[in-house]
């Protein structure tokens, strides 16, 4: 078997998801044996060259030139997989989609004039066709290896699309929303993290993004009844997957 060529690419992001790949200590040798890592700036200095069987893309599109680069990467790729909240939903930086870029720039940078950026941060799928998305901030490494395996043997990756609550219940974690009135986003969020926060009695804040068919409005109504203001409710959603939650919420209320 000729080893499939993998390229790992980065747009606007914190590199945490790429680090997840490097942190796959138990699997990294197997990956190198099964795949040809042909481009991965975080790990090697191999130049960008040729076509890829799988491109793994981290980060959101937030500048003009990124819009062109992602089209180039798509053209070089047989399969394109996006990883992480930035690439799948625009990331934390997509909070600027609901505000004015110039006011953000003024608050963050000493010389705002030097910053060229789009007024929005958007997911890769808003720009090119994406074959598969791995959500999470950061992604779960088991989901990445499941995806790579699925590619090798030609099956659909078994990555959950149901709610985090399902994972919580499997682990037998007492529900903090029902037993303590904590505003937990689990019922509208994809499983996949292994119920990390809730196992420490912390409410889920949605780093795996909206689950399939998420009924955000109903949960927000319920939080409102618990005593949260509309503003509190929105700020629960306005984290690294703000763009996705807000989009699903608007589509759901149509």
């Amino acid at each position: 078997m000729k080893r499939p060529r993998i390229g790992v690419f980065k747009f606007t992001s914190c590199d945490g998801c790429q680090l997840t790949i490097l942190n796959m200590e138990d699997e990294i040798l197997d990956i190198l044996e099964l795949f040809d890592i042909a481009y991965f700036r975080e790990a090697t200095d191999k130049p960008l060259r040729g076509q890829f069987d799988i491109s793994i893309v981290e980060g959101s599109i937030s500048t003009d030139w990124q819009k062109e680069d992602i089209v180039d990467i798509r053209e070089r790729s047989r399969h394109l997989i996006t990883i992480g909240a930035c690439a799948t939903s625009g990331g934390l930086q997509a909070l600027r989609n609901w505000a004015s870029l110039s006011s953000y720039k003024k608050h963050v940078y000493p010389s705002p004039d030097m910053i060229t950026a789009l007024s929005t941060s958007t997911p890769i799928s808003d720009h090119v066709y994406v074959d598969y998305e791995l959500w999470g901030c950061p992604i779960n490494k088991d989901a990445l290896s499941e995806t790579l395996i699925s590619f090798l043997i030609g099956k659909r990756p078994g990555i959950p699309r149901y709610s985090l609550c399902m994972e919580c219940k499997r682990h037998g974690i007492p529900c903090i929303l029902v037993s303590n009135g904590e505003p937990c986003l689990g019922p509208i969020t994809k499983a996949g993290c292994g119920a990390l926060c809730t196992s420490f009695e912390r409410p889920c804040y949605g780093c795996f993004g909206p689950k399939d068919d998420a009924n955000i409005e109903s949960l927000m109504r319920y939080f409102h009844n618990l005593g949260l203001t509309q503003k509190d409710c929105i700020s629960l959603l306005d984290k690294m997957n703000s763009y996705a939650y807000r989009k699903v919420r608007i589509e759901g209320s149509k």
Binding site: D26, E27, K169, D213, N215
Partner: peptide, 25 residues
């Protein structure tokens, strides 16, 4: 919310799914 909690806590809901767990190794 289609969250599935009702089915997970129900003592008679028996539905399950199977999948093949493969490791790169």
């Amino acid at each position: 919310l289609a969250c599935g909690n009702c089915t997970q806590v129900c003592p008679t809901c028996f539905c399950n799914s199977s999948y093949d767990n493969l490791q790169l190794s």
